[in-house]
Amino acid sequence: MTRLSSAQRHLVRFTLNGKPVQGEAEPRLLLTDFLRQTIGATGTHVGCEHGVCGACTITVDGELARACLTLAVQIDGCELRTVEGLAPAPDRLGVLQAAFRRNHALQCGFCTAGILMSLDHYLRAHPKPSEAEIRDLLSGHLCRCTGYTPIVQAALEAAAELAELSRSDHRDV
């Protein structure tokens, strides 16, 4: 295992939403700060920096992770997905995002990125979720605006639509 010097910056290379990127980070730099300030991907938000609120949720090598509890140097060589990678095109929303807009499933939008990441990850593996399963999944996210019901509704609608789409075989989450 490489031993990193606390006094130095280290080169971190990784894949962000399918594209190779790199930047330098001190060992103590949090992944949230690295993504937002060094890489410039500000869609991942910081709500608590202790892993409870879920706003900073991303996927690292296909697994959900709290970026605020991850050090930047840990993701060297990893594949990351963040909210910036969800839409099929800059002027188009994905199925899940569109369901959120339709259901008024966001107000201030600050917690939304993390919630979208959790749902996107979950729906890929669980195409037919129940409301109870969605609620259980989302219990790791805090939203102060919506009272959650529209989020749950949007997730269920998106799941149904995605299942329909996957039958006609063009999947576009």
Binding site: R36, A41, T42, G43, T44, H45, V46, T82, V83, E84, L86, A87, P90, L93, Q97, F100, R101, R102, H104, L106, C108, G109, F110, T112, A113, L116
Partner: peptide, 18 residues
């Protein structure tokens, strides 16, 4: 539908720290 939502849903919100 809200005009605010597209930016917020794609990580392009402009909050103070962004």
């Amino acid at each position: 539908e809200r005009v605010e939502d597209a930016a917020l849903l794609t990580g392009r919100g402009r909050f103070i720290d962004d």
